[in-house]
Write a protein that binds this DNA or RNA. Structure first.
Lengths: 242, 242
DNA sequence: TAGTGGTCTAGACCACGCT
DNA sequence: GCGTGGTCTAGACCACTAA
Protein backbone atom coordinates (compact mmCIF):
# COMPACT_ATOMS: atom_id res chain seq x y z
CA UNK A 1 0.00 0.00 0.00
CA UNK A 2 1.18 3.51 -0.65
CA UNK A 3 1.67 5.16 2.70
CA UNK A 4 1.23 8.59 1.16
CA UNK A 5 -2.30 7.74 0.04
CA UNK A 6 -3.29 6.31 3.36
CA UNK A 7 -1.90 8.90 5.70
CA UNK A 8 -2.22 12.50 4.72
CA UNK A 9 -5.88 12.78 3.71
CA UNK A 10 -8.47 13.60 6.29
CA UNK A 11 -10.84 10.85 5.25
CA UNK A 12 -12.50 7.97 7.10
CA UNK A 13 -10.35 4.89 7.29
CA UNK A 14 -12.64 2.87 5.02
CA UNK A 15 -12.48 5.61 2.38
CA UNK A 16 -8.70 5.66 2.38
CA UNK A 17 -8.65 1.89 2.11
CA UNK A 18 -11.20 2.00 -0.70
CA UNK A 19 -8.99 4.39 -2.66
CA UNK A 20 -5.93 2.26 -2.04
CA UNK A 21 -7.58 -0.98 -3.10
CA UNK A 22 -8.93 0.68 -6.23
CA UNK A 23 -5.48 2.01 -7.14
CA UNK A 24 -3.85 -1.36 -6.55
CA UNK A 25 -6.27 -3.23 -8.77
CA UNK A 26 -5.92 -0.66 -11.53
CA UNK A 27 -2.14 -0.59 -11.44
CA UNK A 28 -1.77 -4.34 -11.34
CA UNK A 29 -4.33 -4.86 -14.10
CA UNK A 30 -6.18 -7.50 -12.13
CA UNK A 31 -7.54 -10.46 -14.11
CA UNK A 32 -11.37 -10.26 -14.16
CA UNK A 33 -11.60 -14.03 -13.67
CA UNK A 34 -9.56 -14.11 -10.47
CA UNK A 35 -11.01 -13.16 -7.08
CA UNK A 36 -9.32 -10.26 -5.33
CA UNK A 37 -7.79 -10.99 -1.87
CA UNK A 38 -10.37 -12.08 0.69
CA UNK A 39 -11.82 -9.76 3.27
CA UNK A 40 -9.91 -11.59 5.99
CA UNK A 41 -6.61 -11.09 4.19
CA UNK A 42 -7.25 -7.44 3.52
CA UNK A 43 -8.27 -6.87 7.14
CA UNK A 44 -5.01 -8.35 8.30
CA UNK A 45 -2.95 -6.55 5.69
CA UNK A 46 -4.41 -3.13 6.53
CA UNK A 47 -4.56 -3.95 10.25
CA UNK A 48 -8.22 -2.98 10.56
CA UNK A 49 -11.31 -4.92 11.51
CA UNK A 50 -13.17 -6.87 8.88
CA UNK A 51 -16.18 -4.55 9.05
CA UNK A 52 -14.05 -1.67 7.84
CA UNK A 53 -12.80 -3.67 4.87
CA UNK A 54 -16.37 -4.68 4.09
CA UNK A 55 -17.43 -1.05 4.03
CA UNK A 56 -14.57 -0.12 1.69
CA UNK A 57 -15.40 -2.97 -0.67
CA UNK A 58 -19.13 -2.28 -0.51
CA UNK A 59 -18.37 1.18 -1.84
CA UNK A 60 -16.49 -0.25 -4.79
CA UNK A 61 -19.41 -2.60 -5.42
CA UNK A 62 -21.83 0.32 -5.39
CA UNK A 63 -19.55 2.22 -7.75
CA UNK A 64 -19.74 -0.69 -10.14
CA UNK A 65 -16.06 -1.63 -10.07
CA UNK A 66 -16.42 -4.92 -8.19
CA UNK A 67 -19.04 -7.55 -7.58
CA UNK A 68 -19.30 -10.16 -4.84
CA UNK A 69 -20.26 -13.80 -5.25
CA UNK A 70 -21.03 -15.57 -2.01
CA UNK A 71 -18.79 -18.59 -1.53
CA UNK A 72 -16.54 -17.66 -4.47
CA UNK A 73 -15.03 -14.29 -3.75
CA UNK A 74 -15.00 -10.72 -4.99
CA UNK A 75 -14.23 -9.91 -8.63
CA UNK A 76 -13.68 -7.04 -11.02
CA UNK A 77 -16.91 -6.32 -12.82
CA UNK A 78 -17.43 -5.66 -16.49
CA UNK A 79 -19.79 -2.79 -17.11
CA UNK A 80 -23.42 -3.68 -17.46
CA UNK A 81 -24.77 -2.26 -20.65
CA UNK A 82 -28.34 -3.08 -19.80
CA UNK A 83 -28.64 0.57 -18.85
CA UNK A 84 -27.27 1.79 -22.16
CA UNK A 85 -29.46 4.18 -24.03
CA UNK A 86 -28.98 1.97 -27.07
CA UNK A 87 -30.92 -0.77 -25.32
CA UNK A 88 -34.00 1.40 -25.48
CA UNK A 89 -34.31 1.14 -29.20
CA UNK A 90 -36.87 -1.58 -29.67
CA UNK A 91 -36.68 -3.41 -32.98
CA UNK A 92 -39.04 -6.04 -34.26
CA UNK A 93 -38.49 -8.73 -36.86
CA UNK A 94 -40.98 -9.75 -39.55
CA UNK A 95 -42.91 -11.86 -37.06
CA UNK A 96 -43.36 -8.84 -34.83
CA UNK A 97 -41.12 -10.30 -32.12
CA UNK A 98 -38.49 -8.24 -30.41
CA UNK A 99 -35.05 -8.62 -32.00
CA UNK A 100 -31.58 -7.74 -30.77
CA UNK A 101 -29.51 -6.18 -33.52
CA UNK A 102 -26.23 -7.77 -34.56
CA UNK A 103 -23.07 -5.69 -34.69
CA UNK A 104 -20.96 -5.77 -37.86
CA UNK A 105 -17.80 -3.82 -38.54
CA UNK A 106 -17.90 -2.31 -42.02
CA UNK A 107 -14.45 -0.76 -42.13
CA UNK A 108 -11.42 -0.03 -39.97
CA UNK A 109 -8.55 2.33 -40.77
CA UNK A 110 -5.97 4.59 -39.26
CA UNK A 111 -6.91 8.25 -39.62
CA UNK A 112 -5.17 11.53 -38.84
CA UNK A 113 -6.06 13.35 -35.62
CA UNK A 114 -9.30 15.31 -35.39
CA UNK A 115 -9.22 18.14 -32.83
CA UNK A 116 -12.72 17.55 -31.43
CA UNK A 117 -12.26 13.81 -31.08
CA UNK A 118 -8.75 13.99 -29.66
CA UNK A 119 -10.16 16.36 -27.08
CA UNK A 120 -12.91 13.90 -26.12
CA UNK A 121 -10.30 11.18 -25.75
CA UNK A 122 -8.01 13.52 -23.83
CA UNK A 123 -4.99 12.85 -26.01
CA UNK A 124 -2.53 15.22 -27.67
CA UNK A 125 -3.61 17.04 -30.81
CA UNK A 126 -1.03 15.23 -32.86
CA UNK A 127 -1.93 11.65 -31.93
CA UNK A 128 -3.37 9.49 -34.71
CA UNK A 129 -6.71 7.70 -34.39
CA UNK A 130 -8.35 4.48 -35.48
CA UNK A 131 -11.78 4.85 -37.02
CA UNK A 132 -14.32 2.07 -37.26
CA UNK A 133 -17.58 2.11 -39.16
CA UNK A 134 -20.04 -0.30 -37.63
CA UNK A 135 -23.62 -1.27 -38.40
CA UNK A 136 -26.26 -2.82 -36.21
CA UNK A 137 -28.54 -5.01 -38.19
CA UNK A 138 -31.90 -6.75 -37.76
CA UNK A 139 -32.81 -9.15 -40.56
CA UNK A 140 -30.57 -7.52 -43.14
CA UNK A 141 -31.93 -4.11 -42.32
CA UNK A 142 -29.60 -1.48 -40.88
CA UNK A 143 -31.19 -0.05 -37.73
CA UNK A 144 -28.22 1.77 -36.20
CA UNK A 145 -25.16 3.29 -37.80
CA UNK A 146 -22.02 3.83 -35.71
CA UNK A 147 -18.69 5.56 -35.97
CA UNK A 148 -16.05 4.68 -33.41
CA UNK A 149 -12.71 6.36 -32.69
CA UNK A 150 -9.84 4.94 -30.63
CA UNK A 151 -6.36 6.24 -29.82
CA UNK A 152 -4.04 4.59 -32.32
CA UNK A 153 -1.30 4.28 -29.72
CA UNK A 154 -3.31 1.89 -27.52
CA UNK A 155 -5.25 0.06 -30.21
CA UNK A 156 -2.82 -0.32 -33.11
CA UNK A 157 -3.06 -4.12 -32.88
CA UNK A 158 -6.64 -3.92 -34.11
CA UNK A 159 -5.37 -2.84 -37.52
CA UNK A 160 -4.16 -6.37 -38.14
CA UNK A 161 -7.73 -7.62 -38.39
CA UNK A 162 -10.16 -7.61 -41.29
CA UNK A 163 -13.58 -6.06 -40.57
CA UNK A 164 -15.35 -9.41 -40.56
CA UNK A 165 -12.97 -10.83 -37.98
CA UNK A 166 -14.48 -8.53 -35.34
CA UNK A 167 -17.25 -10.37 -33.60
CA UNK A 168 -20.61 -9.10 -32.49
CA UNK A 169 -19.14 -7.52 -29.35
CA UNK A 170 -16.22 -5.13 -29.42
CA UNK A 171 -15.26 -4.73 -25.76
CA UNK A 172 -14.11 -8.32 -25.16
CA UNK A 173 -12.13 -7.94 -28.40
CA UNK A 174 -10.43 -4.79 -27.08
CA UNK A 175 -9.45 -6.58 -23.88
CA UNK A 176 -8.22 -9.69 -25.63
CA UNK A 177 -6.04 -7.97 -28.20
CA UNK A 178 -5.13 -4.60 -26.67
CA UNK A 179 -5.42 -5.23 -22.93
CA UNK A 180 -7.89 -2.37 -22.60
CA UNK A 181 -10.66 -3.24 -20.18
CA UNK A 182 -13.72 -1.01 -20.54
CA UNK A 183 -14.94 -0.25 -17.05
CA UNK A 184 -17.55 2.50 -17.34
CA UNK A 185 -19.10 4.72 -19.97
CA UNK A 186 -21.03 7.94 -20.29
CA UNK A 187 -23.76 8.33 -22.85
CA UNK A 188 -25.53 11.39 -24.16
CA UNK A 189 -28.77 11.47 -26.11
CA UNK A 190 -29.58 14.30 -28.47
CA UNK A 191 -31.12 14.94 -31.86
CA UNK A 192 -29.87 16.00 -35.22
CA UNK A 193 -31.42 16.67 -38.59
CA UNK A 194 -28.21 17.73 -40.25
CA UNK A 195 -26.60 14.47 -41.23
CA UNK A 196 -26.98 12.27 -44.21
CA UNK A 197 -26.61 8.54 -43.68
CA UNK A 198 -26.90 6.19 -46.60
CA UNK A 199 -26.96 3.10 -44.37
CA UNK A 200 -30.03 4.39 -42.57
CA UNK A 201 -31.56 5.94 -45.69
CA UNK A 202 -31.61 9.29 -43.92
CA UNK A 203 -31.40 12.57 -45.82
CA UNK A 204 -30.59 15.96 -44.45
CA UNK A 205 -33.63 17.29 -42.66
CA UNK A 206 -34.67 13.88 -41.32
CA UNK A 207 -34.67 13.88 -37.53
CA UNK A 208 -32.33 11.25 -36.10
CA UNK A 209 -31.43 10.25 -32.57
CA UNK A 210 -27.74 10.65 -31.83
CA UNK A 211 -26.20 8.77 -28.94
CA UNK A 212 -22.64 9.67 -28.07
CA UNK A 213 -20.67 7.35 -25.84
CA UNK A 214 -17.36 7.91 -24.11
CA UNK A 215 -16.02 4.67 -22.65
CA UNK A 216 -13.40 4.59 -19.88
CA UNK A 217 -10.80 1.99 -18.94
CA UNK A 218 -9.99 0.89 -15.40
CA UNK A 219 -7.65 3.83 -14.94
CA UNK A 220 -10.64 6.04 -15.65
CA UNK A 221 -9.17 7.37 -18.86
CA UNK A 222 -11.44 7.76 -21.92
CA UNK A 223 -10.35 5.29 -24.58
CA UNK A 224 -13.29 5.06 -26.96
CA UNK A 225 -15.54 7.72 -28.46
CA UNK A 226 -18.57 6.56 -30.36
CA UNK A 227 -21.49 8.13 -32.19
CA UNK A 228 -24.55 6.00 -32.90
CA UNK A 229 -27.37 7.20 -35.09
CA UNK A 230 -30.84 5.73 -35.28
CA UNK A 231 -34.40 6.57 -36.19
CA UNK A 232 -36.63 7.86 -33.40
CA UNK A 233 -39.74 5.80 -34.17
CA UNK A 234 -38.98 2.84 -31.96
CA UNK A 235 -37.22 4.61 -29.16
CA UNK A 236 -38.67 4.51 -25.63
CA UNK A 237 -36.65 5.30 -22.54
CA UNK A 238 -37.57 4.95 -18.85
CA UNK A 239 -36.12 6.40 -15.64
CA UNK A 240 -37.06 6.10 -12.01
CA UNK A 241 -36.96 9.19 -9.86
CA UNK A 242 -36.68 9.02 -6.10
CA UNK B 1 -44.68 -3.79 14.84
CA UNK B 2 -46.76 -6.36 13.06
CA UNK B 3 -45.59 -9.75 14.21
CA UNK B 4 -46.87 -11.41 11.05
CA UNK B 5 -44.57 -9.31 8.90
CA UNK B 6 -41.56 -10.00 11.04
CA UNK B 7 -41.89 -13.71 11.58
CA UNK B 8 -42.95 -15.85 8.68
CA UNK B 9 -40.72 -14.63 5.88
CA UNK B 10 -37.39 -16.25 5.36
CA UNK B 11 -35.47 -12.98 5.05
CA UNK B 12 -32.48 -11.53 6.87
CA UNK B 13 -33.38 -9.75 10.05
CA UNK B 14 -32.44 -6.33 8.67
CA UNK B 15 -34.69 -6.90 5.64
CA UNK B 16 -37.69 -7.77 7.80
CA UNK B 17 -37.04 -4.72 9.92
CA UNK B 18 -36.67 -2.55 6.83
CA UNK B 19 -40.05 -3.70 5.56
CA UNK B 20 -41.65 -3.10 8.94
CA UNK B 21 -40.22 0.40 9.34
CA UNK B 22 -41.32 1.28 5.83
CA UNK B 23 -44.84 0.07 6.49
CA UNK B 24 -45.05 1.95 9.79
CA UNK B 25 -43.99 5.25 8.27
CA UNK B 26 -46.40 4.87 5.40
CA UNK B 27 -49.35 3.93 7.56
CA UNK B 28 -48.77 6.67 10.09
CA UNK B 29 -48.19 9.29 7.39
CA UNK B 30 -45.02 10.56 9.03
CA UNK B 31 -44.41 14.33 8.93
CA UNK B 32 -41.47 15.04 6.57
CA UNK B 33 -40.17 17.69 8.98
CA UNK B 34 -39.94 15.36 11.98
CA UNK B 35 -37.10 12.92 12.46
CA UNK B 36 -38.06 9.26 12.67
CA UNK B 37 -37.14 7.41 15.90
CA UNK B 38 -33.39 7.28 16.53
CA UNK B 39 -31.29 4.25 15.75
CA UNK B 40 -30.84 3.62 19.46
CA UNK B 41 -34.59 3.59 20.04
CA UNK B 42 -35.28 1.31 17.11
CA UNK B 43 -32.53 -1.08 18.21
CA UNK B 44 -34.12 -1.33 21.63
CA UNK B 45 -37.62 -1.62 20.25
CA UNK B 46 -36.76 -4.43 17.85
CA UNK B 47 -34.31 -5.99 20.33
CA UNK B 48 -31.46 -6.13 17.82
CA UNK B 49 -28.07 -4.54 17.75
CA UNK B 50 -27.68 -1.04 16.38
CA UNK B 51 -25.70 -2.28 13.37
CA UNK B 52 -28.71 -4.25 12.19
CA UNK B 53 -30.96 -1.18 12.43
CA UNK B 54 -28.36 0.83 10.56
CA UNK B 55 -28.36 -1.68 7.75
CA UNK B 56 -32.16 -1.61 7.51
CA UNK B 57 -32.23 2.17 7.43
CA UNK B 58 -29.35 2.36 4.96
CA UNK B 59 -31.47 0.33 2.58
CA UNK B 60 -34.31 2.80 2.87
CA UNK B 61 -31.85 5.63 2.27
CA UNK B 62 -30.56 3.90 -0.86
CA UNK B 63 -34.12 3.36 -2.02
CA UNK B 64 -34.70 7.09 -1.71
CA UNK B 65 -37.37 6.96 0.98
CA UNK B 66 -35.27 8.42 3.82
CA UNK B 67 -32.27 10.67 4.22
CA UNK B 68 -29.93 11.08 7.18
CA UNK B 69 -28.61 14.34 8.57
CA UNK B 70 -25.77 13.93 11.01
CA UNK B 71 -26.55 15.51 14.33
CA UNK B 72 -30.22 16.01 13.44
CA UNK B 73 -31.73 12.65 12.68
CA UNK B 74 -33.29 10.65 9.87
CA UNK B 75 -36.13 12.06 7.80
CA UNK B 76 -38.59 11.18 5.05
CA UNK B 77 -37.19 12.43 1.77
CA UNK B 78 -38.99 14.26 -0.97
CA UNK B 79 -38.13 12.94 -4.41
CA UNK B 80 -35.26 14.60 -6.16
CA UNK B 81 -36.34 15.73 -9.58
CA UNK B 82 -32.84 16.62 -10.65
CA UNK B 83 -32.89 13.28 -12.45
CA UNK B 84 -36.12 14.04 -14.25
CA UNK B 85 -35.98 13.78 -17.98
CA UNK B 86 -37.59 17.20 -18.10
CA UNK B 87 -34.45 18.68 -16.61
CA UNK B 88 -32.60 17.73 -19.74
CA UNK B 89 -34.39 20.23 -21.88
CA UNK B 90 -32.00 23.13 -22.02
CA UNK B 91 -33.59 26.50 -22.67
CA UNK B 92 -31.83 29.78 -23.21
CA UNK B 93 -33.13 33.30 -22.78
CA UNK B 94 -32.44 36.22 -25.14
CA UNK B 95 -29.03 36.74 -23.55
CA UNK B 96 -28.10 33.16 -24.33
CA UNK B 97 -28.03 32.22 -20.67
CA UNK B 98 -29.61 29.08 -19.42
CA UNK B 99 -33.12 29.60 -18.12
CA UNK B 100 -35.38 27.46 -15.95
CA UNK B 101 -38.95 27.49 -17.22
CA UNK B 102 -41.78 28.67 -15.00
CA UNK B 103 -44.82 26.48 -14.51
CA UNK B 104 -48.27 27.99 -15.03
CA UNK B 105 -51.60 26.24 -14.75
CA UNK B 106 -53.85 27.20 -17.66
CA UNK B 107 -56.98 25.34 -16.66
CA UNK B 108 -58.33 22.87 -14.14
CA UNK B 109 -61.58 20.94 -14.32
CA UNK B 110 -63.29 17.75 -13.34
CA UNK B 111 -63.59 15.33 -16.25
CA UNK B 112 -65.27 11.98 -16.77
CA UNK B 113 -63.17 8.81 -16.53
CA UNK B 114 -60.91 7.82 -19.43
CA UNK B 115 -60.16 4.08 -19.61
CA UNK B 116 -56.45 4.42 -20.48
CA UNK B 117 -55.77 7.01 -17.79
CA UNK B 118 -57.79 5.27 -15.09
CA UNK B 119 -55.75 2.19 -15.85
CA UNK B 120 -52.48 4.07 -15.44
CA UNK B 121 -53.71 5.42 -12.11
CA UNK B 122 -54.98 1.97 -11.12
CA UNK B 123 -58.44 3.19 -10.20
CA UNK B 124 -61.87 1.86 -11.12
CA UNK B 125 -63.20 2.56 -14.59
CA UNK B 126 -65.98 4.66 -13.19
CA UNK B 127 -63.94 7.07 -11.08
CA UNK B 128 -63.89 10.69 -12.17
CA UNK B 129 -60.65 12.57 -12.85
CA UNK B 130 -59.25 16.05 -12.50
CA UNK B 131 -57.48 17.39 -15.57
CA UNK B 132 -54.97 20.22 -15.52
CA UNK B 133 -53.48 21.99 -18.50
CA UNK B 134 -50.12 23.46 -17.62
CA UNK B 135 -47.51 25.40 -19.54
CA UNK B 136 -43.81 25.82 -18.89
CA UNK B 137 -42.62 29.18 -20.02
CA UNK B 138 -39.32 30.94 -20.66
CA UNK B 139 -39.62 34.68 -21.37
CA UNK B 140 -43.25 34.51 -22.51
CA UNK B 141 -42.49 31.65 -24.84
CA UNK B 142 -44.12 28.28 -24.23
CA UNK B 143 -41.41 25.61 -24.22
CA UNK B 144 -43.31 22.68 -22.73
CA UNK B 145 -46.97 21.83 -22.77
CA UNK B 146 -48.41 19.52 -20.11
CA UNK B 147 -51.58 17.63 -19.38
CA UNK B 148 -52.04 16.24 -15.89
CA UNK B 149 -54.61 13.82 -14.56
CA UNK B 150 -55.41 13.10 -10.91
CA UNK B 151 -58.00 10.86 -9.21
CA UNK B 152 -60.87 13.16 -8.30
CA UNK B 153 -61.49 11.27 -5.08
CA UNK B 154 -58.12 12.21 -3.59
CA UNK B 155 -57.67 15.65 -5.13
CA UNK B 156 -61.17 17.18 -5.15
CA UNK B 157 -59.97 20.02 -2.90
CA UNK B 158 -57.88 21.36 -5.78
CA UNK B 159 -61.08 22.31 -7.61
CA UNK B 160 -61.60 25.17 -5.16
CA UNK B 161 -58.62 27.03 -6.62
CA UNK B 162 -58.33 29.25 -9.66
CA UNK B 163 -55.57 28.33 -12.14
CA UNK B 164 -53.40 31.27 -11.17
CA UNK B 165 -53.50 30.32 -7.49
CA UNK B 166 -51.35 27.29 -8.25
CA UNK B 167 -47.71 28.21 -7.75
CA UNK B 168 -44.75 27.27 -9.82
CA UNK B 169 -44.51 23.87 -8.14
CA UNK B 170 -47.39 21.45 -7.92
CA UNK B 171 -46.16 18.74 -5.55
CA UNK B 172 -45.91 20.91 -2.43
CA UNK B 173 -49.41 22.15 -3.33
CA UNK B 174 -50.71 18.57 -3.47
CA UNK B 175 -49.26 17.83 -0.05
CA UNK B 176 -50.52 21.03 1.52
CA UNK B 177 -54.09 20.80 0.30
CA UNK B 178 -54.71 17.11 -0.31
CA UNK B 179 -52.23 15.38 2.00
CA UNK B 180 -50.76 13.50 -0.93
CA UNK B 181 -46.99 13.28 -0.63
CA UNK B 182 -45.27 12.40 -3.92
CA UNK B 183 -42.52 9.96 -3.10
CA UNK B 184 -41.25 8.55 -6.40
CA UNK B 185 -42.01 8.76 -10.09
CA UNK B 186 -41.39 6.86 -13.28
CA UNK B 187 -40.78 8.67 -16.54
CA UNK B 188 -40.80 7.45 -20.10
CA UNK B 189 -39.35 9.25 -23.10
CA UNK B 190 -40.69 8.65 -26.57
CA UNK B 191 -41.51 10.51 -29.77
CA UNK B 192 -44.65 11.45 -31.55
CA UNK B 193 -45.49 13.27 -34.75
CA UNK B 194 -49.21 12.77 -34.48
CA UNK B 195 -50.30 15.53 -32.17
CA UNK B 196 -51.22 19.11 -32.75
CA UNK B 197 -50.38 21.59 -30.03
CA UNK B 198 -51.25 25.21 -30.44
CA UNK B 199 -49.24 26.29 -27.40
CA UNK B 200 -46.07 24.85 -28.92
CA UNK B 201 -47.00 25.84 -32.49
CA UNK B 202 -46.71 22.21 -33.49
CA UNK B 203 -48.68 20.76 -36.40
CA UNK B 204 -49.33 17.15 -37.18
CA UNK B 205 -46.19 15.67 -38.69
CA UNK B 206 -43.83 17.72 -36.51
CA UNK B 207 -41.68 15.46 -34.38
CA UNK B 208 -42.15 16.15 -30.66
CA UNK B 209 -40.64 14.61 -27.55
CA UNK B 210 -43.23 13.10 -25.27
CA UNK B 211 -42.39 12.50 -21.63
CA UNK B 212 -44.92 10.53 -19.62
CA UNK B 213 -44.70 10.58 -15.86
CA UNK B 214 -46.46 8.41 -13.31
CA UNK B 215 -45.95 9.76 -9.80
CA UNK B 216 -46.44 7.62 -6.69
CA UNK B 217 -47.36 8.52 -3.13
CA UNK B 218 -45.75 7.06 0.00
CA UNK B 219 -48.02 4.04 -0.15
CA UNK B 220 -46.55 3.38 -3.58
CA UNK B 221 -49.85 3.99 -5.31
CA UNK B 222 -49.87 6.00 -8.57
CA UNK B 223 -51.68 9.29 -7.99
CA UNK B 224 -50.64 11.50 -10.89
CA UNK B 225 -50.33 10.81 -14.60
CA UNK B 226 -48.73 13.47 -16.73
CA UNK B 227 -47.82 13.96 -20.37
CA UNK B 228 -45.31 16.67 -21.26
CA UNK B 229 -44.59 17.65 -24.83
CA UNK B 230 -41.61 19.63 -26.07
CA UNK B 231 -39.50 20.26 -29.12
CA UNK B 232 -36.45 18.05 -29.59
CA UNK B 233 -33.97 20.75 -30.58
CA UNK B 234 -32.68 21.57 -27.13
CA UNK B 235 -32.86 18.16 -25.58
CA UNK B 236 -29.71 16.46 -24.34
CA UNK B 237 -29.71 13.57 -21.90
CA UNK B 238 -26.81 11.86 -20.12
CA UNK B 239 -26.44 8.51 -18.36
CA UNK B 240 -23.57 6.80 -16.67
CA UNK B 241 -23.06 3.09 -17.25
CA UNK B 242 -21.08 0.90 -14.89
C1' DT C 1 -14.72 -30.25 3.54
C1' DA C 2 -12.38 -25.93 3.28
C1' DG C 3 -12.89 -21.30 2.32
C1' DT C 4 -15.66 -17.53 0.77
C1' DG C 5 -18.90 -13.74 1.59
C1' DG C 6 -23.49 -12.75 4.48
C1' DT C 7 -25.44 -11.69 8.80
C1' DC C 8 -25.31 -10.13 13.49
C1' DT C 9 -23.68 -8.67 18.14
C1' DA C 10 -22.52 -5.30 21.87
C1' DG C 11 -20.23 -2.33 22.61
C1' DA C 12 -16.71 2.31 21.99
C1' DC C 13 -15.50 6.92 20.61
C1' DC C 14 -15.96 10.86 17.21
C1' DA C 15 -18.15 14.79 14.51
C1' DC C 16 -21.87 17.49 13.90
C1' DG C 17 -26.40 20.32 14.88
C1' DC C 18 -28.90 22.55 17.79
C1' DT C 19 -30.15 25.29 21.97
C1' DG D 1 -23.82 20.31 26.59
C1' DC D 2 -26.74 16.95 24.80
C1' DG D 3 -28.40 13.99 21.40
C1' DT D 4 -27.91 12.69 16.71
C1' DG D 5 -25.77 9.91 13.12
C1' DG D 6 -20.71 8.38 11.57
C1' DT D 7 -16.93 5.38 12.24
C1' DC D 8 -14.71 1.34 14.05
C1' DT D 9 -13.67 -2.92 16.71
C1' DA D 10 -13.20 -8.01 17.43
C1' DG D 11 -15.22 -11.25 17.32
C1' DA D 12 -19.37 -15.24 16.25
C1' DC D 13 -22.10 -18.22 13.38
C1' DC D 14 -24.52 -19.18 8.86
C1' DA D 15 -25.07 -20.06 3.69
C1' DC D 16 -23.07 -20.87 -0.30
C1' DT D 17 -19.49 -22.62 -3.87
C1' DA D 18 -16.13 -25.52 -5.56
C1' DA D 19 -12.97 -29.29 -5.31
Amino acid sequence: MSTATLSQLNLPLYERIRIDIQARLVEQGWDPDLPIPTEQMLAQEYQVSIGTIRKAIDRLVQEGMLYKAQGRGTFIKQPDFKNSLLRFFRFRNHEGKQAVPTGMVKSIRKVPPTPAINKHLQIDEGMALIELQRLRIVENKVVLSEQIWLPERLFSDLLRFEPLEFGNLLYPFYYQHCGQFISTAKETLSFTSEVEDSDLNARKGDMLIKIERLAYNLENRPVEYRISLGRPENFKYEVKIS
